[in-house]
């Protein structure tokens, strides 16, 4: 199977799974924004997605996608490490055109996965998992009350800092991943390379800002960094 036994095939798997994950992030970020202006609206989404069969099926699909992306990442990195040979250069001089993120995708990816584990612990475990095991009060708040879980999480300054670090790492990962994925599937050239890079930067920045604004709102308004003087 060429998706396993050729270098370009393995890269195609990385690209396609990566692009699918970007689509998921877009969906997730749009959903989060609802929490900025409506508690009822946000909790309705939480209830809709809860432990219904379609949400569980989509979660399993998503988990498979993440697993494939991670397994291939380690596989490719191991092969690349071997291809480099046993000796390393004594002196290296990184060319200006080489972006830092492009050479540190695995490290950034590991930070993203660690952040994801924390995130699953903070939310998924108390929400979807709680419903699946029929213990809706597992986390002390009802499983469909996502809004209060957000408020609870970001009342802790350590979580706020960890989430910001996580999102910054994700931004770096996406700025390279976006155009790199399209380059790998062959949709690039001298003109489209510049376009994809520009679109990729803009898209990743907007996406991460969408996540950050929710963290910021809940950290500041009644959260970890609340001044306590405004009536909100």
């Amino acid at each position: 199977m060429w998706l396993c036994d050729s270098s370009i095939g393995r890269k195609v798997v990385m690209s396609v799974s990566g692009l699918a994950l970007i689509l998921f992030l877009t969906f997730h970020a749009s959903m989060n924004l609802v929490a900025l202006f409506s508690k009822e609206g946000y909790n309705m989404i939480c209830e809709f997605l809860g432990a219904n069969w379609y949400a569980v099926a989509a979660t399993l699909g998503l988990a498979a996608l993440v697993a494939v992306h991670i397994v291939y990442a380690f596989w490719l990195t191991l092969q690349n490490y071997r291809a480099r040979g046993k000796d390393r250069y004594a002196v290296t001089d990184k060319p200006k055109a080489v972006e830092w993120a492009s050479q540190n995708m695995l490290v950034l990816g590991i930070i993203v996965v660690l952040g994801m584990v924390l995130h699953l612990w903070n939310f998924w475990y108390n929400m979807m998992f709680a419903e699946l095991i029929h213990q809706p009060m597992l986390g002390g708040i009802h499983a469909t009350n996502g809004y209060d879980y957000i408020a609870q999480t970001f009342s802790n300054p350590i979580y706020v800092v960890l989430y910001v670090i996580w999102l910054v790492a994700l931004w770096f990962h996406l700025t390279h991943g976006f155009w790199s994925a399209l380059q790998t599937v062959g949709w690039s050239g001298k003109i489209w390379f510049e376009r994809w890079k520009c679109i990729g930067y803009a898209y990743s920045t907007i996406l991460i800002l969408m996540f950050l604004v929710v963290v910021a709102k809940f950290a500041i308004c009644g959260g970890a960094f609340c001044c306590g003087s405004c009536p909100l």
Binding site: S7, K11, Q79, N80, S102, Q103, M105, Q183, T184
Partner: peptide, 19 residues
């Protein structure tokens, strides 16, 4: 196929080659 067989690595689009 020959490139893979000879043990060259997978491209990760860092652009160091082009530079």
């Amino acid at each position: 196929a020959k490139m893979d067989e000879l043990g060259f690595g997978n491209c990760t689009n860092t652009r160091a080659c082009e530079a």
